[in-house]
Amino acid sequence: MLCLQTSLLISLSSLTVFLAQLGMMMYLPALPSIALSLNTTQNLASLSLPTYLVGMAMPMLLWGKWGAAWGIKPVLIASLLIFSLTNALLAACVQIETFLSLRFLQGLAASGMSVMARSLVAQHFKGNQVAKALSWLSIAFVISLGVGQYAGAILMSTFGWPATFWCLAIGATLQAGCVYRWLSGARQASSTPVCWRHYLTIFRHAPFLRPTLIGGLGYGIIIGFNTAAPSVFQTTYEWSVSEYGALGWAMSLAYVLGSLIVNRYVLIRGQSQLSAIATSIMVAGSVVMVLGVIANTTFAALLWVPYCLIVLGQAISYPISLSTASAHSPVKGPYSMALCGLIHQLVAAFVGLTVSLLSVQNPLYLATLCLLMTVLVRVLNITQPNS
């Protein structure tokens, strides 16, 4: 019975993360079509990704506070229903200003989904088991990369870009019903008094902050790459929408492999050893990417194959960084996961916004950005004390 409850909890958490990440990735193959439909430039339309990330970042501390005060279940259901509503409105959007505003609201709801899903896991697991459980959420995240981009490309080609948002609206409504039916009653995350000062206490704690930044910078690499990728691959390499959508499967396979490595070996090797291996893989992938792009600027595989190696390393590193941060948090409850989420989204939003404003369309510039960020991730990992 306990095993069944654990499996149900992980399944509900994973599906919630899956939906939140679909909101970020599913529409990407349709960006050129959205720009055309809304009578705007592709660069302006690409701001919808960092706008979503800013929306995810801003209320995360509020979601954590609400989860601690009212319980995870009602807060999770509320965020799912808001997510569903904003997707339905996005499907009917006709102006870029409205589109960007709704993407911000969509991100607000996705932040609640993300914080509550991770808080559920952190609440019910301890030690290396947290990293093992979080690896399932990572698998859900990465499947959304492949399924999202590929399904988005198919839906856009067949029914037009609004269909992607209608699918998300329906999915979020169904998920809210499942949470209401199957998740145990609203439960306080801890007996810790609800207080804003808890966030400052956690933020000042270096053993929490270092792994959080490692996870956030790795996440930022993925966001930065995907912000520039539609333009780079469809313009520089002249790929079709379907070809770009299919690239998501390669990224998904890399991320699933990394997540399965964590799931299989974290109890054997330990978190510190796996984290060191993962960050080294990320640096190696970015070095190969830079050298490959310099050697041949017209061969797309020299950009995306090394990127998949970076994704593999991030898939190993990310659940470990979350687990380490949660374990070293001086305050219990949803606070640590909320602050992790805020820092991750702020880093990712900054990277995505920078890539959009700089209009990064040169593969070498994109590869160099990946190299700089992976080196920083590795430096933080080296300076991090063993857990």
Rank of each mutant, 00 (worst) to 15 (best):
F208E: 05
L28E: 07
G127Y: 01
R269N: 14
V347N: 02
H328L: 09
I77E: 07
T383C: 12
S356T: 05
L366N: 02
A367D: 01
A140R: 01
L342W: 02
V375P: 01
S138D: 10
L105M: 08
L342T: 09
S138T: 14
I10S: 08
V287A: 03
C3Q: 15
K332P: 01
V287M: 07
L44D: 11
V142E: 04
A169N: 00
M26H: 06
L376Q: 03
Q188W: 13
I281C: 10
P385K: 13
F159N: 14
I221F: 10
P74V: 02
Y27M: 12
F141A: 11
R269A: 15
P32G: 08
G216Y: 08
L145K: 01
L274Y: 07
S144T: 00
N386I: 15
L62H: 05
S157G: 08
A57V: 08
Q361S: 05
F225N: 00
H205F: 12
S48L: 04
Q188S: 14
G64A: 13
E97W: 13
T236K: 00
L47H: 00
C178H: 08
R210V: 14
L61Y: 02
L376E: 03
L267F: 06
A284S: 07
S33N: 14
R210H: 14
V115E: 03
